[in-house]
């Protein structure tokens, strides 16, 4: 793990953010599974927005919906879901910062998440600048397909890595 990354963990360890998160997680009845469910529901919205759009661009789903119309309608849902997941995830991150900032799988998760977010942002911005941008020529449509394929892979890997944070030892210390 990069040094600055682990130092974020050390910085958070013992801070008021940690005590606040631990207080919420241990005092409010059922808080951990409830917040985890909110986090998974956020992933469900990611699936129902950007992943569905990717499948549409690849010609696999919802053929009656137009790419440009879908993009402007669904992308706000993605950003709200990610904002919600940032908050729900923060409880666990702040609660046990070293578990995450020392965990290579968490590093993997971020290295899938950041390009996934940038790709989605880029896709949305081009569509906003020019309605139907991605459908206006076959060259652009093929670029859209390449982006969709990459985006699909990245979002699946974000969710996958998220779940594997708890199983880092299976990969790094195999039996």
């Amino acid at each position: 793990m990069p040094d600055f990354f682990t130092s974020i963990g050390t910085l958070l360890e013992g801070s008021f953010l940690q005590s606040g998160a631990l207080w919420a997680l241990s005092t409010i009845p059922g808080f951990p599974p409830i917040i985890q469910t909110v986090h998974i529901l956020g992933i469900a919205v990611v699936m129902g927005s950007v992943v569905l759009l990717d499948l549409r661009i690849l010609g696999l789903a919802v053929p009656s919906q137009k790419i440009s119309e879908m993009t402007s309608r669904l992308m706000p849902w993605l950003w709200w879901a990610l904002a919600s997941n940032l908050i729900s995830g923060a409880f666990f991150l702040f609660g046990r910062p070293l578990r995450y900032f020392n965990n290579p799988i968490f590093g993997w998760k971020l290295s899938f998440l950041i390009p996934a977010v940038l790709l989605a942002l880029f896709f949305q911005l081009m569509n906003k600048r020019e309605e139907g941008y991605w459908e206006s020529s076959s060259k652009r449509l093929w670029s859209a397909r390449a982006i969709a394929l990459l985006s699909l892979f990245l979002w699946i890997m974000v969710a996958m890595a998220g779940r594997w944070i708890a199983y880092a030892e299976y990969i790094y210390y195999p039996a």
Binding site: I40, L41, I43, A44, V45, V46, M47, G48, S49, V51, L52, I156, A159, M160, R163, W164, A166, Y167, Y170, P174, A175
Partner: peptide, 24 residues
């Protein structure tokens, strides 16, 4: 074995897709 976390992560992704696809 590693099968358990593997199945579990696929389960979460599939479940999220169940809800994500029925959401609209």
């Amino acid at each position: 074995t590693i099968w358990f976390p593997f199945l579990e992560s696929i389960h979460v992704i599939a479940a999220a897709f169940v809800v994500g696809s029925i959401l609209m």
